[in-house]
Every structure is written in C-alpha cells, then in structure tokens.
Simulated assay, not measured.
Amino acid sequence: MCADVSLAVLAKAPLPGQAKTRLIPTLGAEGAARLHERLLRRTLEIARATTPQVTLWTALQHHHPLFLELADTYRIELRPQPHGDLGQRMLHALAAMPCPGLVIGTDCPVLTPTLLRRCHAALNDADVVCLPAEDGGYGLIAMHRAEARLFSGIDWGTERVMPQTAHAAAELGLRLCCLTTVWDVDRPEDLARLATHSPGLLANLGVPTTHGR
C-alpha cells in the first residue's frame, strides 16, 4: 500500500440552477450554488489536511474560475469527470489512482482528516471500505483496485445504494468494512442539522439557525 492516501473528490461547478438542485426551493438557485461552493471549499480543506495526493474531478464546467482558483490554492490536480452515471464516474476516478485510494463527494460535512485516514488504514484488512449515509447511500468508498461490477446495477440516488453495494461486494467475495454512518446535505430538512454543525456554511443564505425539520 502507498504510504500516502490517494484521494479523489467529485464536484460540480457551482452553477445556479444546476448545483444542489433539491435545495433550490429553500435557498433559491443562487443560494444553493453558494452553499455548494462552500461545501466544496470545506471538503478540499479536509482533503488537503489529509494528504497531498488530491485530485478534483470536475463536472458541468471544467474550467470554471472556482476550480482554477482551488487548484492553485490547494495545489491539486484537476481532471474532468467522464460521461455516465455516478457509479461510472467513481469507477473512473478509482481506476486512475496509482494505488489504493478514496473517493468522496462534497455533500458530507462530517468528514475529517482523522476519519479519512481511518478509512485508508481499514484497507489493510478489507477490500472495500464505505461510510454508509443515513439516506441509504454512502459518503465515501475506498478500494484497493477499481472493480466495475461493484458499480453496476446500483440505483444511484436512492436509499438502496448501500444495501445493493454490500450485496454486490458479498457476491464478488470482497471484504467490506463500514466504519461509521455519516449524513449528507441534500434536502431542505438537512439544513437544520447543518445549521447546528457548521452554521458558517449557511451564513447570509437566508436560513435561520432555528430552521425546522
């Protein structure tokens, strides 16, 4: 195993109307895009505090000024996400890694460098490591090598993602380790928890800290 963690971050450009679309009814298109940008910045801070080997896989607008700024600030590599569903894009990122690595998005505010390193270390005893999400998906996947069959036949964006992934791993004879359950910021009801956990991310977005579920 490589001494350093290889880490891929998948992110859309913060284009109003195309980023965090499920939050638009609450935040508006501009507000949802601004929150997405803040979550992306925070994710990259965590990523670079974990390892120097970070690749930002971009979508929607690969040369967006924010991506160029972040690449310069954090000294990270930019690569365009390929066409295809989420599984195909994660598979592509894993296949591009020179050694075992981790893939994350930008929606999980509870990731920390310590947790990311624990996931990497867990690969010593497992073939696949996941952080299941409360909504049924997962906030991180780590693997020794890209395995296409683990990403096919998955109902992405549904509560079936993690159960289907666990079933696929078992069928393939892969040792799966799930360290802890995390939560994402995807829906309006997630904003209340975010306001408690990281209120600065919602500053000036028109969401009061007492926003209810």
Rank of each mutant, 00 (worst) to 15 (best):
L111D: 00
L201Q: 08
C2V: 10
Y138F: 15
Q81Y: 04
A3G: 13
T106L: 02
F67Y: 07
P14Q: 05
R89L: 00
L123S: 07
L131P: 01
T50E: 00
P25F: 06
T180L: 14
G153D: 10
H120V: 03
V103G: 06
A8N: 02
P16D: 09
P100G: 08
R187C: 12
E147P: 01
L205M: 11
C178P: 07
A8D: 01
G31V: 09
S6C: 13
R38E: 10
D155E: 12
A93W: 00
R79G: 02
L78R: 04
H63T: 14
P14V: 03
G157A: 11
G17E: 11
M143F: 02
E45D: 15
L40W: 10
L172Q: 14
R38L: 12
P188Q: 10
A169C: 15
L27R: 03
T73Q: 15
P65L: 04
Q164N: 09
W57L: 08
T106A: 09
Q61E: 15
D85F: 12
L172E: 12
T21I: 15
T114E: 15
R89C: 02
A93I: 01
L15I: 15
D72I: 06
A168Y: 05
L102T: 00
P163S: 08
G31K: 07
G139P: 00
D85A: 13
A148C: 05
L68W: 05
V110E: 12
Y138R: 02
E37P: 07
R175D: 09
A11V: 00
V207C: 06
H120N: 13
L35A: 04
C177G: 07
T112C: 11
E147I: 11
A93E: 04
V5R: 00
L56Y: 03
L86E: 10
L66Q: 11
R89V: 04
R193C: 09
A203D: 15
A192I: 03
G137H: 01
P199Y: 04
E45V: 13
V161Y: 00
P52W: 01
A122C: 07
M1W: 08
R117H: 14
S198A: 15
L66W: 12
A133P: 09
W57R: 03
D125L: 12
E134S: 15
A29D: 06
C178A: 15
A3I: 03
L68V: 12
C119V: 03
H64Q: 11
F151M: 01
G101Y: 02
T73Y: 10
H211W: 14
A166R: 11
S152A: 07
L179A: 06
T158K: 12
L15P: 08
E147A: 09
T209S: 13
L131F: 12
R175S: 14
L35Q: 04
Q88Y: 10
T73F: 12
L102S: 02
A8F: 01
P82Q: 06
L27Q: 03
